[in-house]
Structure formats: structure tokens, C-alpha cells
């Protein structure tokens, strides 16, 4: 589909000033949306402007956003991983089984992260060594990973996690700032540096823009992709530790449908689904937007499934608006 899109792209005579470019950037537009939702929410519900309520609201998106950072890198490189939610389920199941066997908190965390890495390595192997299209491969591994959880657990659930394990999902670092929120901020900084200030980040953009050219400029495309899948698996493992700790139990249906919300978050954050462009800042703001929307609607007693309508509309309209705007601009010229 990129073929037809490319032919219509025009190179402007002037790029505009630095400020005008910044003001018309996706991130600033999204930030405006976030502020608007924030203001609307605080008028719509008297319970919205409360530090503890807002702190609770962050749990809506922190776990998803952690994965969204890694997913953003993957999407920028032109790949996708739809198996992330299934990795959460499998990692959580493994931790649950280990907890029943009496393994302590450090061991559980290691198992969670290890399973995440192993799943990521499996995806990476299929995509970068066997050179398979990631969208179908990860649909397959999505069924496989969650399927293993179903085989292990069936209709049962794991509980009885050690008390100290609860810290990751329920603990607070100071005042209203939860462990998850602090981790989310730290990871955002790490990923922003990785993508925007390292060689590796540059290589990701190059691969997403022109894989062919990337090969000719000596980038080991397969290795970069493999690392990205590994990273995505690791983040899914971390998210699994947080989610399992927060819920205190594991069912095979844990985090069902999250892959779509995570991809929505990434795309809403201005990352091109065709690869090659996007920023971590955009994803961070998108995470806040989605968290604020779902939390605000929740305060207004809107059921979860109706919220998903808003998320879907948000996804399509935020992508459609710049396209429509560009059309109108082209027509008036």
C-alpha cells in the first residue's frame, strides 16, 4: 500500500520555522487532546481532581505503556508483535506455577522476565532467522503462548503469591507515586535515549524507512529485529510481573485483548504503522490520553466495553484528521 501513498507525497519548498513545525507536530496536537480531556473530565466528574484517584488512574495504562515502548521500536522498524498479551499470560502462568512450588519473590520475578525473554526470542527467531512476516507469525505465537496457559490452567486459577510479591503492582515509592508509575517513567526515559540518542535507534529508523538501503549501509537488519523482539518479550515479562502482582492471581484469560490496545497506543502516539517514523514522547502522551479517557469515562459510570468504542474512534479519528487536513490543503492549493 506504500507504493500508492509514496507517489502522492510532495516535497515542500520551505520547511517552515522551527516553532511552526513544533506546533504542528503530532506530539503537540496529542498533548492538546490530553489537556482537553483532562479539563473536560474535571468538569464532568467531581471525583476526578484528586491525587489518589489520579494515581489509581495510572494503573489503567502503565503496564500497557511499558510494552508499548518496545512495540513502538518494533513498529518503527516495520515489524509488529501481536503476541504480547499472550506472553503476559504465559509468564504469569509460569510465575503462578512457581509460586505454588514455594519459590520466593526474586525467583518469581526472574521466571517472569525469563519467560518473556524466551517468548521474544522465539518470535525473533521466526521473524529474523526464518524471515517470516511478523504479523502472521505473532498471530500464531499468540494462540500458542496463550494456548499453553490454557493447557496448564484450564478453568482454574493460581493464587497464593508471597506477600512481598505484591509490591510490584500495589506498592508506592513515595506519596501517590506507585512503583508501576515510577517504573513507567524510568522506562520511558531509557527507551527515549535508546531510540533518539544511540546508534541502535538510528538503525531502527533506517530499517523502517528503507530496509534495502539499511542492508547496503552495513546494518545487520536481522540482528536489530531479533533484539527488538527480545526487548518486546522482556517488556511483556515485566508487565506480567506488575499485572500478576497487582491482581494477585493468574487466569489463562489474563490481559486478553491487550495487544490491540497496545498497538492502538503506539499508533495514537504518532508512530507510523508502515514503519520509519515515531517518537517515544508521542507514545507517552498517547498512554496518558488513553488512561485519562478510560478513567474519566469510568468515573461517569460508562461500562468498559463502551469505553472501547471511544478508544476505537480515537484511533481512527486521530489518524484520519491529519490525512484529511492534508487533502484539504492540497485541494486549496
Amino acid at each position: 500500500m506504500s507504493e500508492t501513498a509514496n507517489s502522492k507525497r510532495v516535497i515542500p519548498d520551505r520547511l517552515g520555522t522551527r516553532t511552526s513545525r513544533l506546533l504542528s507536530s503530532w506530539e503537540v496536537l496529542l498533548l492538546g487532546v490530553a489537556v482537553a480531556i483532562f479539563v473536560f473530565n474535571s468538569f464532568a466528574s467531581p471525583y476526578f481532581l484528586n491525587a489518589w484517584n489520579l494515581s489509581d488512574a495510572t494503573f489503567n495504562f502503565t503496564e500497557k505503556a511499558m510494552i508499548a515502548f518496545a512495540m513502538a521500536l518494533l513498529v518503527i522498524a516495520g515489524e509488529i508483535d501481536l503476541s504480547v498479551a499472550a506472553i503476559i499470560a504465559l509468564a504469569s502462568t509460569a510465575m503462578g506455577a512457581a509460586a505454588q512450588a514455594g519459590i520466593g519473590t526474586p525467583g518469581l520475578v526472574a521466571i517472569g522476565l525469563g519467560v518473556g525473554l524466551a517468548c521474544g526470542a522465539f518470535n525473533g527467531f521466526l521473524v529474523s532467522v526464518l524471515r517470516l512476516p511478523s504479523i502472521v507469525v505473532t498471530i500464531g505465537t499468540m494462540s500458542l503462548f496463550r494456548g499453553i496457559s490454557y493447557i496448564v490452567l484450564g478453568d482454574k486459577a493460581y493464587g497464593n503469591y508471597p506477600d512481598s510479591f505484591a509490591y510490584f503492582g500495589q506498592g508506592y515509592v513515595f506519596w501517590v507515586f506507585s512503583f508501576e508509575f515510577v517504573l513507567f517513567i524510568l522506562l520511558a526515559i531509557v527507551f527515549a535515549i535508546l531510540l533518539h540518542a544511540t546508534n541502535f535507534g538510528r538503525q531502527i529508523y533506517v530499517i523502517g524507512n528503507n530496509e534495502f538501503a539499511a542492508r547496503f549501509s552495513g546494518i545487520s537488519v536481522e540482528r536489530v529485529k531479533f533484539i527488538l523482539f527480545l526487548l518486546t518479550g522482556l517488556m511483556a515479562g515485566i508487565a506480567s510481573v506488575c499485572l500478576t502482582s497487582r491482581l494477585g492471581s493468574t487466569r489463562p484469560s489474563i490481559a486478553q485483548g491487550w495487544e490491540l490496545e497496545i498497538v492502538t497506543m503506539v499508533v495514537l502516539g504518532g508512530v507510523s504503522i508502515l514503519g520509519g517514523s515515531g517518537t517515544i514522547a508521542g507514545v507517552v502522551i498517547a498512554a496518558f490520553v488513553m488512561g485519562l479517557v478510560t478513567f474519566g469515562l469510568g468515573l461517569l459510570n460508562v461500562p468498559g466495553i463502551v469505553m472501547s468504542i471511544f478508544v476505537g474512534l480515537l484511533l481512527i479519528t486521530t489518524i484520519a484528521i491529519p490525512i484529511v487536513a492534508r487533502r484539504i490543503k492540497e485541494m486549496s492549493r
Binding site: 507469525v137 500464531g140 499468540m142 494462540s143 494456548g147 493447557i151
Partner: peptide, 15 residues
């Protein structure tokens, strides 16, 4: 409950 995992393996092999 094994059905999901089996279709997963089948999809990967088919790809």
C-alpha cells in the same frame, strides 16, 4: 483447552 495451542502451532508451521 489444548485447541488454542494446537491452532497456534499449526499457524506457525503453515506460515
Amino acid at each position: 483447552f489444548a485447541q488454542l495451542a494446537i491452532s497456534g502451532i499449526v499457524i506457525v508451521l503453515a506460515v
